[in-house]
């Protein structure tokens, strides 16, 4: 029961953080994707099943609250959660360089995936345009990755999550 409550609280905190507070940390219109970085951490620590489920629900929440292509975030976050979870215990998430490289790569994949989904499912709607935001977004995510991983590690140890 405690674990379910812990996951639920993480879900809610993620929503509150991403949609309420992160916008105050934007630089020249670029805000970090805290949910994405948190998803990477959870997937690496807990494995593919937890990662994809968390990704699905976070992605669905984003699609509900936002005005993007409905289902795009759910699809991408689910995919990222699954494949990142497969790296669990194969990738050293405690190293700073590992955190940053993985986060940067996944952020690029996310942007490319969004562009791909728009091309297929909504070619007439607003899509992705290459500008400085698309370039700086992965960099910003990479910068905050160590902080998110540190906070996640502290939280996980407090709630006594068992690592697979």
């Amino acid at each position: 029961m405690n674990v379910i409550l812990a996951y639920f609280s993480v879900f809610i905190c993620g929503i509150v953080l991403q949609f309420g507070i992160v916008r105050y940390f934007s630089l020249y219109g670029v805000a970090p994707d805290v949910l994405l970085v948190s998803l990477i951490f959870i997937s690496l620590v807990k494995g593919p099943l937890t990662g994809q489920l968390m990704g699905f629900f976070w992605g669905l929440a984003w699609d509900v609250i936002g005005i993007d292509l409905f289902g795009s975030h759910a699809f991408l976050y689910t995919t990222i959660g699954y494949f990142t979870g497969l790296l669990s215990h194969k990738w050293n998430e405690s190293k700073l360089s590992s955190q940053m490289i993985l986060t940067f790569t996944v952020s690029l994949f996310f942007l490319a995936g969004r562009h791909f989904l728009y091309k297929i499912f909504a070619p007439s709607e607003f899509g992705l345009h290459l500008n400085y935001i698309l370039i700086l977004q992965p960099v910003y995510n990479t910068v905050i990755a160590p902080l998110v991983f540190l906070a996640g590690g502290i939280f996980a140890s407090r709630v006594r999550f068992e690592q697979k």
């Binding site: 494995g47 593919p48 099943l49 994809q52 489920l53 699905f56 992605g59 699609d63 509900v64 292509l69 409905f70 289902g71 795009s72 759910a74 699809f75 689910t78 995919t79 699954y82 979870g85 989904l117 499912f121």
Partner: peptide, 29 residues
């Protein structure tokens, strides 16, 4: 288990992507 779950969730996501915001999807949203 995780692979089957991924396939299941992917199917739901594709359904959401193709359904757009009409009818039941809009109501669920």
């Amino acid at each position: 288990r995780s692979s089957f779950t991924f396939l299941f969730l992917t199917a739901i996501n594709i359904a959401l992507l193709t359904a757009h915001l009409t009818g039941y999807v809009g109501t669920i949203k």
